[in-house]
């Protein structure tokens, strides 16, 4: 029952966000919508760092004691509960504006060029919507495996305490198919982030001959750290961990 209420609250929140965003988002200028999407993305990038730090605690080899403490803090602290809603709003804003921008841009050139464009461009920037969609599919998968199992909407593996994130992670990651999908998705997320960080600086007008090259390197590094950092965990459970 509590599951139903939570899903109802979730749907209601999405509805409220759209109600607030709905009219105004179409009135936004192209720059404003990009700025809002960028700031929401920047916020999600900060969240990813926290998420990665907590996930890596699984590898400490203390039978998940530190990880357990971190999870307990994240699930029981009231401030984090509020943060969850902010985070969710961040996702909705980032995805909705991203899709709207893509739709607007898609229809600006009704007749495409016959010759594939040969202009030198930053490669990952051309595929933000594609990598974004892959990440969205992954998010849905992620929600199905953690959030929905917790709610009882999706049946978890038999005899598992759905609140025990470590056991659930171990079970999921020892499945080669799940781990492969997980790693591939994070590689695409790495590509997405590679462009995202440097792009948000440009959108906010922060371009400087001295600092921009450094920001570009930092952006690439951030993408690599997130992709590699998250991928280490399934690789560890698949190949190096004995139950």
């Amino acid at each position: 029952m509590s599951g139903t209420i939570q899903v109802y609250l979730l749907v209601r929140q999405i509805y409220l966000i759209f109600k607030v965003m709905g009219k105004s988002v179409f009135k936004l200028s192209t720059i404003s919508s990009k700025v809002i999407m960028g700031i929401a993305g920047l916020f999600l990038m900060l969240f990813l760092c926290v998420h990665l730090a907590i996930n890596l605690l699984m590898l400490l080899g203390d039978e998940g004691q530190m990880f357990g403490k971190a999870v307990y803090f994240m699930t029981h602290n009231p401030a984090i509960k509020i943060f969850e809603y902010v985070l969710f709003t961040g996702f909705i804003i980032h995805i909705t504006i991203g899709v709207l921008i893509w739709l607007r841009n898609y229809f600006v050139r009704p007749i495409k060029y016959a010759v594939t464009p040969r202009s030198k461009t930053s490669c990952f920037s051309r595929y933000m919507i594609h990598t974004g969609i892959i990440i969205l599919i992954f998010l849905i998968l992620h929600f199905t495996h953690f959030f929905f199992v917790k709610l009882g909407w999706v049946t978890g593996p038999e005899g598992i305490d759905t609140h025990d994130f470590l056991s659930m992670s171990k079970l999921l990651f020892t499945n080669p198919v799940y781990s492969s999908i997980y790693i591939v998705c994070f590689i695409f997320l790495g590509f997405h982030l590679n462009h995202a960080l440097q792009s948000v600086f440009q959108t906010l007008g922060l371009n400087h001959p001295r600092y921009t090259p450094f920001i570009k390197v930092l952006s690439a590094l951030y993408g690599i750290i997130i992709a590699v950092g998250f991928s280490i965990i399934p690789i560890y459970f698949l190949f190096f961990h004995t139950v």
Partner: peptide
């Protein structure tokens, strides 16, 4: 100028730098 650019229907910048 930005309002006119949007009104005319130009796309937005994806920082692709072509």
């Amino acid at each position: 100028m930005i309002a006119k650019m949007d009104e005319l229907g130009f796309g937005s910048c994806s920082n692709t730098y072509a």
